[in-house]
Design a protein around this nucleic acid. Structure first.
Ligand SMILES: [Mn+2]
Ligand SMILES: [Mn+2]
Ligand SMILES: [Mn+2]
Ligand SMILES: [Mn+2]
Lengths: 128, 128
DNA sequence: GACAAAAGTTAGACATGGCTAACTTATCTA
DNA sequence: TAGATAAGTTAGCCATGTCTAACTTTTGTC
């Protein structure tokens, strides 16, 4: 059975928020807008949607935090993102292209496929 | 530079239309609706968009045809679809999952990545 | 501490891609 | 060939995700 999963928007946002908190100390709308290539009002609206979905906690004009469920989703997304990128790179694809393609592909990779990517990745290590 | 590409909707539609014409002799809205899991009015609306985009030719209540440019896009999409599916299968992923994941992944695979998939596929043949 | 600049929000518009209900056209069948 | 059924369309609604313009709040600087 297919469990209802978050939108690509939600996945990209929580992933990025987790990353910003880790590397910058906090997640701010300006940064998010720049990184995702959208305008600030778009970020405001989407963050409020994430809040409604229980993925994010925050009050107006302050930094953005992840709820436990947001954390969980973010970790899963980051893990998946890393695997997809590493897998593409293991095929000889340049980092830049791998990153760009992974940003879309990651949202369509089932658990089965993710595991297969992981396996193939392990194989590619042996052969080096 | 990134060339403006058709929407995923457009790609899925022309791909399916080409397939239906090949296997059924003609492409009809009911079939398209069933195959894509949407309702007939959605198909009507989207077909008219494809027509506006110059990918499709047709008059009301009649079957749907591809323009030359629609044909071209359809062929590219079908080719890409086949490669992605074959590649996933070559990783040991079951056909069903491969098909489902490919339906989304195909729209995010750059030319570079597609070529890499093709290469890896050739390799996997040698090792059998 | 005042005020300028930066960051963030609100309001309102738009495109895309879904849907249902109601209608029209085409096709089948007795 | 009439009437029933199937197929297709239209109208109007909704959710998502984007934008610009204008406003508010926060931050930094003198
Ligand atoms: Mn992504
Ligand atoms: Mn990602
Ligand atoms: Mn597809
Ligand atoms: Mn496809």
């Amino acid at each position: 059975m297919r469990q209802a999963h978050e939108s690509e928007m939600a996945e990209d946002y929580v992933e990025l928020i987790a990353e910003l908190i880790e590397t910058r100390g906090e997640a701010r709308p300006v940064e998010i807008a720049e990184r995702l290539g959208v305008k600030p009002p778009t970020v405001t609206k989407n963050i409020s949607r994430l809040k409604a979905a229980g993925l994010v906690r925050r009050e107006p004009y302050r930094a953005i935090f992840l709820t436990d469920s947001g954390q969980e989703l973010a970790e899963a997304c980051r893990q998946r993102h890393r695997i997809v990128v590493a897998f593409l790179c293991s095929l000889g694809i340049d980092e830049e292209t791998a990153e760009r393609d992974a940003e879309g592909i990651e949202h369509h990779v089932s658990e089965t496929t993710l595991v297969a990517f992981g396996q193939a990745l392990k194989q590619s290590w042996k052969h080096e």
